[in-house]
Design a protein around this nucleic acid. Sequence first.
DNA 1: AGTTAAACCTGGTTGC
DNA 2: TGCAACCAGGTTTAAC
Length: 287
Amino acid sequence: MPELPEVEVTRRSIDLPLRGARVQAVHLGKPLRWPLGCPPGSLVGQYLGAVLRRGKYLWLPLHERASAGLTGSTQGLLLHLGMSGALELRTPTVPPGGDLALARHEHFRLDTDRGSLRLLDPRRFGAVVWSPGLAAEPAAGLLAGLGLEPDDPALTEARFHAELQRRRAPIKTVLLQGEVIVGAGNIYACEALFQAGIDPRCSAARIGPVRARRLLHALRHTLAQAVELGGTTLRDFHDARGVHGAYQEQVAVYGRAGLPCVRCGTRLRRLQQAQRTTVYCPRCQRR
DNA sequence: AGTTAAACCTGGTTGC
DNA sequence: TGCAACCAGGTTTAAC
């Protein structure tokens, strides 16, 4: 479920409700991708600050005092939803001593005075990692190598094109790697390439300035629209309050292999790229 | 160095 | 109905 739009929608659903909340207890379920990296009890008494997003990661800063200022220099939790993760914010908070048992697939829970935040993740590809700072290890290492945010003004058309010029891999693969621009996973990479009319097999280096411009615009438009619509709910994605997304109703190619192209009617094709399924229109998308 | 495969997990769907 | 095979929104790690 979680590409950039789903992570951003999740961020927005927990940021204000939890800002300033005091941690009362931390519960761990089965192991996630990495260990938490600190004794769970050491977080008790800390206060949550504004929740940030970087790529598909969420950063939950933790302050010693209730009203702290900036967020980057404090300790906190770096959270990733992996392939099947979702957060749920439950109010009221699970009472101390009561209902300690974690639900099925609940592998992390932060009880605060403003509600219980829990991570549900059946496949456990997700992660919750404590870090002494966003720029300190291990957070810095996990975020190192990430490309620019889609809405970063520094990501100009010229720079985007120049970065593509340096990579010979298929454009779909380059988008998934997230070293040029973050946020597009399998769904939105397929959708943006369709919107831009670019064949997913086309080498990134062979994309000219005009098509690079179209692709950047398509990525920004696709991701922004998905955020507005609450993300894509294929099976069970929802924000932390349980609200489902609606972008699946806008999908033009993802999951539609064999069906007619919405633009020209040609049968959409499926292929494998870097172990992931790509769907595209052989007529609308050119090399 | 740069690209591709295997690995991490569970659950739903498909097909015999 | 049972069961094996295959598929899935991501990323790291190991192997060519």
